[in-house]
């Protein structure tokens, strides 16, 4: 497996995973577990966005729609049927199939054109879903949303924590395998030089569609978990802020690295949590979104390739230093 993992700091991943597995034994504060659960859910969402933007170079302004489709499918099923695990699976499956269909249709309509058509079309369709959720009151209860009950395993904060943690790990491994596969390599190639990839015999439309559907399915999964975590849903899941969150998370973590997307989700969710807590003492922090905006600008100016790119740069610098040292020693 060396070929597959030589670039990935595998030990770091395992260490973090172990720490997260043991965490509930060390600290069982409810709010902390809820916060971490949110981070895991958004980590999946951010990774799915990264497959599009970071790996394939497709810009989407409506990624929230897949998140919302997943969330609403699960919520509506639980609202109408009993709260059992089987029904969760059914809801999840409906969400995933719908997302795959929608992403396939949007993709095949617009991906053969220049990338901003995809961005515009996803934006339009996601707004369409927002309107649909507002107006189809019989099913969605409009903007007020509705609450629903979930299976007991999901109710217990600790067990749900583990479920989401394992979900992140599984999705990460699956997507990692996907990006390291031959299809994943072609995606990377297309993002760098689509013209060349075609000249090599790769039909870029097919690959972009694969990326688009994969991202849609993963986003739908995170949406389903999100709905379950809140036990409540309203039209906010279709709002443009959800897409922007994903964008911010992947940008901060570093485009084109799945681990970066997870780190980005962690940073944003922690900031959001603590900044809004600070607002109780310092009213200025009620406008914490402004601070996120500043953070965004700083990231773009100082670390244009995100956290992952920053770490890579430091590693490279150290390596060069070591090399120089070695050469000097040899000369001496």
């Amino acid at each position: 497996m060396r070929g597959l993992f030589h670039k990935v700091p595998l030990y770091w991943g395992l260490a973090i995973m172990l720490f997260m597995l043991l965490f509930p034994f060390v600290n069982d504060s409810r709010s902390m577990l809820i916060l971490l659960t949110q981070i895991f859910i958004f980590a999946i969402f951010a990774m799915s966005f990264d497959i599009l933007l970071g790996y394939t170079g497709i810009v989407s302004f409506g990624h929230c729609m897949f998140f919302g489709i997943g969330a609403y499918s699960t919520a509506i099923i639980f609202n109408h049927l009993e709260a059992t695990l089987l029904n969760f699976m059914i809801g999840l499956a409906i969400g995933i199939i719908l997302s795959a269909l929608v992403s396939y249709i949007i993709g095949s309509l617009s991906l053969r054109l220049k990338s901003h058509f995809y961005a515009m079309l996803t934006l339009a369709v996601s707004q369409l879903f927002l309107v649909l959720a507002e107006k189809w009151r019989g099913l969605t209860h409009g903007g007020d949303g509705f609450t629903f009950s979930v299976p007991d395993v999901f109710k217990d904060r600790t067990s749900f924590y583990y479920i989401t943690l394992i979900s992140v790990a599984v999705v990460f491994i699956l997507l990692k395998l996907f990006t390291e596969s031959s299809t994943g390599k072609v995606l990377k190639a297309i993002s760098q030089n689509e013209y060349r990839a075609e000249a090599l015999g790769y039909k870029s439309l097919h690959y972009k569609l694969i990326a688009s559907v994969t991202a849609g399915v993963a986003a739908s999964f995170s949406g389903a978990l999100y709905a379950v975590s809140l036990r409540f849903i309203n039209t906010n899941v279709f709002s443009i802020e959800v897409t922007l969150d994903a964008l911010l998370m992947t940008m901060i973590g570093g485009l084109g690295t799945l681990a970066g997307a997870i780190a980005g989700a962690g940073i944003i969710e922690f900031l959001r949590h603590y900044l809004s807590e600070l607002a109780m003492t310092y009213p200025i922090f009620e406008r914490w979104t402004i601070i996120l905006g500043f953070l965004y600008i700083v990231v773009l100016l100082v670390f244009p390739s995100g956290l992952a790119g920053f770490i890579k740069r430091i590693n490279l610098k150290n390596k060069r230093k070591m090399k120089k040292k070695g050469e000097l020693q040899r000369v001496a």
């Binding site: 497996m1 070929g3 597959l4 395998l177 996907f178 390291e180 596969s181 031959s182 299809t183 994943g184 390599k185 072609v186 190639a189 990839a197 090599l200 015999g201 790769y202 097919h206 694969i210």
Partner: peptide, 21 residues
């Protein structure tokens, strides 16, 4: 490798295979 992959008709496999690698 991207060129080889194309010529060996390995277009759409979505899981990495070590032997092929």
């Amino acid at each position: 490798r991207l060129a080889i992959q194309s010529s060996s008709k390995d277009y759409y496999s979505i899981f990495p295979r070590l032997s092929a690698l």
